[in-house]
Each structure stands twice: as structure tokens, then as C-alpha cells.
Amino acid sequence: MAKQEIAIKTQDGTARAGLFQPSHRPASEVPGVILYMDAFGPRPALDAMAERLASEGYVVLLPDLFYRYGDYGPFDAQTAFSEEPSRTALRGMIGDTTQDMTRRDSAAFLDALTQAGATGRIGTVGYCMGGSRAINAAAAYPDRIAAAASFQPEQSAVLAQALRRAEIDHVIENYVGMAHGWAVPDSRVYDARGAERHWKRLLTFFDETLR
């Protein structure tokens, strides 16, 4: 499944993104997914995850949330937080790429996904840093995003309470024994069994909400 590199015009510049088309298209409208990256940036590990989603019949967009920094890497997921100068650089990029920036960018991401052929419902999924951004995008564009999945969100109890108050249909699971980043294959704490559990839950969720 070929990855297409595209450029997306945003309010703040031009974001590069990977676009992954499904190998088979359903007879009805084609659903789409925006995959919000973790802190280490778009790279082969995330490409593989996007490809797996595309193989299930989704048009998948993997945007670079750090595009404001130009050419920066990506970072090595094994060592970026344990070595300098990557640790300082990475923390700065995470802090300076605000939720509001990603929220604004998501309007352009949605347009790009639609232009790429995602004519059906759209979902979002994010990992680590991207988890809260996937949820915030759905909150900002409820008329366009039908479902959001977040893996490793902080303050899950607070989130659950907010979702109940808002009467949002939701499920929150605790992956006991899994460390932060367990679902991404190049993570130093990757857990194959936990990752497959996450895939089963994610694909079932999107199948129920986007098709």
C-alpha cells in the first residue's frame, strides 16, 4: 500500500502529511481517519499503523503536527527522552505546539482528507501527545468527526466525568501492565500483546461508528 506525501495549507504555514488509500473501497461512502502522531514525529512505525488502518478500508491521513519547525527528524523513539540535546528540543516542541494550534490545523486536515476521497464519516485516533489532540479535534468539529479514540490519555477519571456530563457515548479501558507508549511498534516499551488488544478495540470501534 503506497504512501503519498502531500502538503496541506494551514493558517500558519504548510504541513506535510502522509496519505494512505485503502486497498479496497466499499460500495458506499468511504470513511476516513486522521492519525495524530505521538511526540516523535511521522516515521515508519506510524506509517505502518496508518497502513493497517487503510487496509481495513479507511482513507488515512498522518499529518506532521510539528511542521512549524521545518525539517527536524523524526526523533528516535528509543532514546529521544533519555539523551540530550533531543530531550530538551522535544520538550520545547511539544510545549510550543499548543492544543489550539492543532485544533486550528485540524480544519485543514479534515478538508485534505475529504479531498482525498473520504466521503463518509471521519474518525480520529491519537497516541501519547496525539491522544488529547484527537479528542479535542472531535470536540471542535462535531459536525465532521463522528468518533475519536485516544491511547494513553492523562486524567482518565476527569475525562470520564466530563464525557458523562456531556452525555457522550464512550468507553474507557485500562491496559493493566502496559507502559506509556506500548501500542507504537518502535517504542522502547512496546508490548505486542497489548498492541493487538488495542487494534482489536480500535477497529471494532471505528467499524461500529464510521461505517
Results as ranks from 00 to 15, higher is better:
residue 39 A to D: 12
residue 207 D to M: 12
residue 83 E to G: 04
residue 83 E to V: 02
residue 9 K to Y: 08
residue 62 L to C: 03
residue 210 L to F: 10
residue 106 S to R: 07
residue 77 A to H: 02
residue 209 T to W: 07
residue 4 Q to T: 14
residue 14 T to Y: 14
residue 48 A to M: 07
residue 124 T to N: 03
residue 13 G to W: 15
residue 24 H to P: 14
residue 170 H to S: 06
residue 138 A to G: 15
residue 174 N to E: 06
residue 166 A to Y: 05
residue 143 D to E: 13
residue 42 P to R: 01
residue 89 A to C: 06
residue 81 F to W: 12
residue 167 E to R: 09
residue 67 Y to P: 04
residue 2 A to C: 15
residue 3 K to T: 14
residue 185 P to A: 00
residue 95 G to M: 07
residue 13 G to Y: 13
residue 95 G to A: 10
residue 175 Y to N: 06
residue 130 G to S: 04
residue 162 A to C: 05
residue 86 S to D: 06
residue 101 M to L: 14
residue 101 M to R: 14
residue 32 G to T: 06
residue 157 A to K: 07
residue 17 A to S: 13
residue 56 E to F: 04
residue 47 D to V: 00
residue 204 T to W: 12
residue 141 Y to D: 15
residue 172 I to E: 10
residue 88 T to N: 03
residue 61 L to H: 07
residue 71 D to T: 11
residue 73 G to F: 05
residue 7 A to Y: 12
residue 74 P to V: 07
residue 73 G to V: 05
residue 178 M to K: 00
residue 143 D to S: 14
residue 141 Y to I: 13
residue 144 R to Q: 11
residue 87 R to F: 11
residue 77 A to K: 01
residue 192 A to C: 09
residue 156 S to I: 11
residue 118 A to C: 08
residue 59 V to E: 06
residue 57 G to E: 02
residue 147 A to K: 10
residue 30 V to I: 15
residue 91 R to D: 05
residue 151 F to D: 05
residue 200 K to M: 13
residue 176 V to T: 01
residue 4 Q to R: 13
residue 72 Y to S: 03
residue 117 G to S: 10
residue 132 S to P: 14
residue 59 V to N: 06
residue 188 R to H: 01
residue 206 F to C: 05
residue 195 A to Q: 01
residue 109 F to I: 12
residue 61 L to W: 05
residue 37 M to W: 08
residue 209 T to K: 11
residue 10 T to P: 02
residue 90 L to W: 03
residue 195 A to K: 02
residue 1 M to N: 07
residue 103 R to P: 03
residue 109 F to G: 11
residue 173 E to A: 09
residue 116 A to L: 15
residue 146 A to K: 12
residue 201 R to E: 06
residue 10 T to Q: 14
residue 169 D to P: 05
residue 163 L to W: 06
residue 112 A to P: 01
residue 122 I to D: 10
residue 4 Q to W: 13
residue 29 E to N: 15
residue 9 K to H: 13
residue 186 D to N: 00
residue 12 D to F: 15
residue 147 A to E: 11
residue 113 L to C: 08
residue 185 P to F: 00
residue 154 E to Q: 14
residue 189 V to T: 00
residue 47 D to W: 00
residue 198 H to D: 03
residue 19 L to Y: 11
residue 61 L to P: 04
residue 47 D to E: 03
residue 5 E to I: 15
residue 116 A to F: 14
residue 188 R to W: 00
residue 119 T to S: 13
residue 203 L to N: 01
residue 49 M to L: 05
residue 76 D to M: 00
residue 18 G to D: 08
residue 33 V to M: 08
residue 117 G to F: 12
residue 119 T to L: 10
residue 64 D to S: 04
residue 85 P to C: 09
residue 211 R to C: 08
residue 127 Y to R: 04
residue 171 V to G: 13
residue 2 A to Y: 14
residue 46 L to I: 02
residue 206 F to W: 02
residue 52 R to L: 03
residue 187 S to C: 01
residue 49 M to V: 04
residue 155 Q to P: 10
